[in-house]
């Protein structure tokens, strides 16, 4: 009996499995690489890094905006919650959080924050022991990336925006 049709069918079926696996695993792999880079620059998880504005030499994250100052940290809520704090400027600013599969599960911008400062607790579940009155965000994955975006509207404002965003922080509770 000829067996080659079975071999071809089996290979195609296996190729389909590898195809699906690659599509599912790729976002996690790319996020892991990004987290490793941020964590290495910051000196560990739950610590912020304050890179300069993106140029052609910036090779950490694809398609960076040269009009923004990014502040980033890798959050790890496996042991305890993480406190995110930042001053909020008058120009465009946002705090966003991304899960290990790349989903943007939380975002808040300057217009939706009351006052000129924000404090948020990131935790693995809604029953986490957190300070009263501080908003709690439940992270869908124990590790991920927090990104603060600060718009530099023009060169005159660059120094002021930079000084302000360097006060943004991530720290274990």
């Amino acid at each position: 009996m000829k067996t080659w049709p079975l071999w071809i069918a089996g290979s195609i079926a296996l190729a389909a499995v590898f195809h699906i696996l690659t599509v599912f695993v790729l976002p996690y792999g790319i996020m892991n690489r990004a987290m490793a880079g941020i964590s290495a620059q910051a000196g560990g998880d739950n610590k912020a890094v304050y890179p300069e504005r993106a140029t052609a030499d910036s090779r950490g994250i694809v398609r960076p905006s040269p009009d923004l100052l990014y502040t980033a940290c890798v959050y790890d809520v496996s042991d305890r919650p993480v406190r995110l704090t930042s001053p909020v400027p008058d120009t465009y600013w946002s705090l966003s959080a991304f899960a290990a599969n790349t989903d943007n599960f939380f975002v808040v911008n300057d217009r939706s924050v009351r006052g000129n400062r924000i404090e948020i607790i990131l935790a693995s579940n809604e029953n986490a022991d957190t300070p009263r009155g501080v908003p709690l965000v439940v992270a869908p994955s124990t590790r991920g990336i927090v990104l603060f975006r600060s718009l530099v509207p023009n060169e005159d404002a660059a120094i002021e925006v930079d000084q302000l965003r360097r006060q943004a922080n991530c720290e274990p509770l």
Partner: peptide, 14 residues
């Protein structure tokens, strides 16, 4: 067969 499937599957996905 596994190698061919890996190249075809992962390659087409990428």
């Amino acid at each position: 067969a596994v190698l061919v499937a890996l190249v075809l599957g992962a390659g087409s996905a990428l």
